[in-house]
Design a protein around this nucleic acid. Structure first.
Length: 278
DNA sequence: GTTTAATGGGTAT
DNA sequence: TACCCCTTAAACT
């Protein structure tokens, strides 16, 4: 269930759990047996993410490269019996120390690679709104591709070479929040509109990291942002969206029926009445 | 019990 | 554009 916020939080949590340790790495399911043997017992230097890609750095220039795809999960268990945690289901890769067990299931990519390969992967990815401090995360890099492309903006937002980390929920929701017509070609999008989309993602994704939910409804965004500023507990029970998965229901703003159509291979949701901006 | 959808993306046609 | 892969839970029969 991964968009960029999920991977960012996962990298942070893996880093906390395993950096400086030398976990036993196995492949209970067997499909990663060789890769696991290459890194098992080696010290973890740290874990980072870019967009939907996760990298776990090991001493000795070996990197575990993971992409969860549509259905992958990577869960960390910190129970006191973690070292004896039974294997449930198809576990491609397990990290285990005395204190923690992390199980990877259903990834699209799980490979041991070199730092050079990581650079190659990063080179194919656009700016990540969660990595603002990195020089590679310049929104102008995305703009260069967007304003030259005749593809609809709803498709461009999903293109990881344009923008890294946005998936099917954030694209529908951010386009609604900014009232942008999802079918406008990149060539028709105003620069100020792109800047507004980027700025909104920069604001929204950290809320996703903090809550493990995609928060886009304005009231909830305000509530979570305030809680974060105050450093308090960030809790959010409901999981609402303006348009995502609400086909046929009334728009929360104008009451029109929310529409849906497959764009870039996934179900796009939008309000035809509210979203007219270019 | 079987089918489908799911916050993804690569490769072939 | 179509097909394929990966896993799981919910929606079907």
């Amino acid at each position: 269930m991964p968009e960029g916020h999920t991977l960012f939080a996962l990298a942070r949590d893996l880093d906390t759990a395993f950096a400086g340790t030398s976990p036993t790495v196995t492949s209970p399911q067997g499909k990663f047996a060789h890769g696991a043997s290459l890194i098992s017992g080696t010290e973890v230097e740290g874990a980072t993410s870019w967009g939907k890609h996760l990298f776990v750095d090991f001493v000795g220039d070996r990197v575990l490269w993971v992409h969860l795809g549509l259905i992958g999960t990577f869960t960390i268990d910190t129970s006191s019996y973690a070292g004896e945690l039974p294997v449930v289901g198809q576990v491609r890769c397990r990290f285990a120390t005395e204190d923690h067990v992390a199980d990877l299931r259903g990834p699209m990519v799980c490979d041991v690679v070199t730092p050079e390969k990581v650079d190659e992967v990063l080179g194919r990815l656009g700016p990540d709104p969660l990595r603002l401090t990195d020089v590679r995360s310049d929104p102008d890099l995305a703009w260069t591709r967007i304003h030259r492309s005749r593809k609809p903006i709803a498709e461009l937002l999903m293109d990881q070479a344009v923008l890294a980390g946005v998936g099917n929920v954030y694209r529908s929701e951010v386009l609604f929040r900014l009232r942008v017509n999802p079918f406008r070609p990149g060539t028709a999008i105003k620069r100020s509109t792109w800047q507004a989309i980027w700025d909104d993602l920069v604001a929204l994704l950290p809320l996703g990291v903090a809550t493990s939910k995609i928060v886009t409804i304005h009231d909830q965004v305000d509530e979570v942002a305030r809680a974060l500023e105050e450093g308090g507990d960030v809790r959010l029970d409901s999981r609402d969206s303006y348009v995502y998965k609400r086909a046929g229901e009334p728009c929360l703003v104008c009451g029109s029926r929310i529409r849906t159509e497959v764009v870039a291979g996934r179900n796009l949701f939008w309000c035809g009445n509210c979203q007219r901006r270019s």
